[in-house]
């Protein structure tokens, strides 16, 4: 097979060449600098740095909170997408637009706003404090911040699929005697599954790298509420460049793996929808 299929359109060499050049300069070269720097550590030393107990604890916090946030969004995202597509209510267009707020709002702004709201003397914190629920400066605060910044992902991946879902399928199921709940479980949910998973994975990928919004609300207690990006910063502040790089490489590998997974999911999703 040739490298490229024949096409009458021009500009392949130009556009691909430019794409590769730009990609190399902006993304690949800097990232290989990271990998090269980390090769200054022996495999043994690298392993020792990335499995330090405090760093291990930060993975638990980061991945745990990201997973929880992505799970919360899996459900609330489905709910919001469902309501936006299927029901009508006042100011729907406005609310639909508002869902993208976390994409548009700078994370630092989100961080200070959430810290203000959920501090013990903040508007929500005051309500929760008598119930013994502390949000700001606890791991719960991290989950909250991550839930906020990843809220649009599931909504935006599920919404178009739900919109294109054919009513005939549901009608057919209904005429065969299925209840509404059965239809949801057996007909609708399986169709939405690839989109749900894609949204979930996207939210998870975005959450593990997040820094700006989390540091304002996390409390940053060692072993309890320190996130992995903070460990990189903390290593840097102790002038430990190699250590910072090693942890950064771990994060990079995880991100790349997640992206491969997401692209696989999207391919699966396209194939499934295509068949229908």
């Amino acid at each position: 097979m040739a490298f490229k299929k024949h096409s009458v359109l021009p500009g392949f060499n130009l556009s691909l060449g430019y794409t590769l050049l730009y990609l190399t300069i902006i993304v690949l070269l800097p990232l290989s600098a990271l990998l090269l720097k980390s090769s200054g550590l022996t495999a043994h030393a690298f392993w020792a740095v990335v499995t330090e107990p405090r760093v291990l604890a930060s993975y638990r916090v980061t991945f745990g909170a990201s997973l929880l946030a992505a799970l919360i969004n899996l459900f609330s995202g489905l709910l919001i997408a469902w309501v936006l597509v299927r029901y009508s209510f006042p100011a729907k267009r406005f609310i639909d637009a508002l869902v993208d707020l976390p994409f548009a709002l700078p994370t630092a702004v989100a961080g200070i706003a959430l810290a203000t709201i959920y501090a013990p003397n903040g508007s929500m914190g005051e309500l929760l404090a008598p119930l013994g629920i502390k949000v700001a400066f606890t791991p719960l605060g991290i989950v909250l911040a991550l839930t906020f910044i990843t809220l649009p992902f599931v909504v935006r991946t599920v919404q178009p699929v739900l919109q294109d879902l054919e009513v005939e399928l549901e009608e057919a199921a209904s005429s065969l005697g299925a209840t509404r709940l059965q239809i949801f479980w057996k007909v609708i949910l399986p169709t939405l599954l690839p989109a749900l998973l894609t949204g979930f994975a996207l939210a998870f990928a975005r959450a593990i790298g997040e820094y700006g919004s989390v540091i304002f609300i996390a409390g940053n207690m060692p072993y309890v509420s320190e996130i992995t990006p903070l460990m990189i910063i903390s290593k840097l502040e102790q002038y430990d460049y190699l250590g910072a790089t090693a942890i950064a490489v771990v994060m990079l590998v995880v991100s790349f793996g997640l992206l491969l997974l997401i692209n696989g999911l999207q391919w699966w999703s396209a194939k499934r929808l295509g068949r229908r």
């Binding site: 501090a119 013990p120 003397n121 400066f137 409390g219 940053n220 207690m221």
Partner: peptide, 21 residues
């Protein structure tokens, strides 16, 4: 007895004075 470890002195003051922790 430390509930919050802020990254710097200023953040610690904000926690104590503004957040009343």
């Amino acid at each position: 007895n430390v509930p919050v470890l802020d990254a710097g002195g200023r953040a610690a003051t904000t926690t104590f004075m503004q957040r009343q922790i």
